[in-house]
Amino acid sequence: MPIKFPFRLLAAATIAFTLAGCATSTANLSTASVAAYRDTIDLNGKIAVTYQNNNETNRVGGKFSWTQRPGHVEVSMFDPFGQTVAEISVTPDSATLTQPKREPRTEKDIDTLTRQALGYSLPVAGLRDWLQGYATDAQGKRFVASPANNNVFTRDGWNLRFAEWQDKPGPNGAPLPKLIQANRGATADSGDLSISITIFPES
C-alpha cells in the first residue's frame, strides 16, 4: 500500500516546489520579454503532486495563493476544505515555513528548509518564471512559451509543458498560462515527481 504522510507535511512539499525559483533573474530575457515579465503578481490556483517514495506512489493536492513582489514571495496553501495548512515566506536571505500550532521554521534558503521538512531536497528552480510562461532550457537559454511553442526540457531536468492558456492575455498582451504540467525523473535524492498546476484567471 502507498505510504501515507500527514497532509501538512505533504503540503510543505508542494509549497517547497512552488517557491524554489524565488531568485530568478531577467538578465537573459529579450527586450520584449522583459516588458512582459512582471515582478509583481498576485495569483490563485490549485496544485497536484504525484511522487515516488520507497517505490510507492503518493499523491497530494490543494489550492494556493501566490503573492510576488520584487525579491519577496509569499505563498499560502489550503487543504480541500479551505483550511490554511502552511504558509511560506521567501526572500533572498531566508525562507520561513509556518504551520498551524507549530513554531515557524526559518532557514537561509528554500533548499535547506525543504531538506529539513521532507527529509530530501527538491532541486527545482523556476516556478516564479513558469507561472508567467518562462523557463530556462537545457542549454541555459531563456525559453518563452506560447500556445504554438509550449514544451521545453529545462536545465534542471524538468519536462515542462504549458498545456492550456488563459482566455485573456496579460496586462502587456502576452499569453498567460492556465495549466502547467511538469515531470522529472528520479534523482539521487528522490523518485519520479509529477506536478500539475492550474492557475485561476486574474481578477
Rank of each mutant, 00 (worst) to 15 (best):
N44Q: 13
V90H: 08
T112S: 15
V34T: 11
N151F: 10
R105P: 00
V124L: 15
A138W: 06
I41R: 06
R105F: 09
G140M: 08
F143Q: 05
K63I: 00
T136E: 07
T96Q: 10
I47T: 09
E74C: 08
K101H: 08
H72Q: 13
V49M: 09
V152L: 10
P147N: 11
L160S: 02
L160C: 01
N58W: 07
V124W: 05
S121G: 14
T136M: 09
G119T: 12
L160N: 02
V34Q: 13
G61V: 03
A125F: 11
V49Y: 07
P100L: 11
R105T: 09
P80V: 10
G126R: 05
T57V: 14
S94P: 00
G61D: 10
T114Y: 02
K46D: 10
Y134K: 08
N55K: 13
P70S: 06
A35K: 15
T84M: 12
P70R: 08
T84K: 13
G71S: 07
Q139K: 15
K141Q: 15
I41D: 03
W66H: 03
P147W: 01
V85Q: 15
E87D: 08
I110H: 01
N150M: 02
E107T: 11
W66F: 15
R38N: 04
R105M: 14
G45S: 04
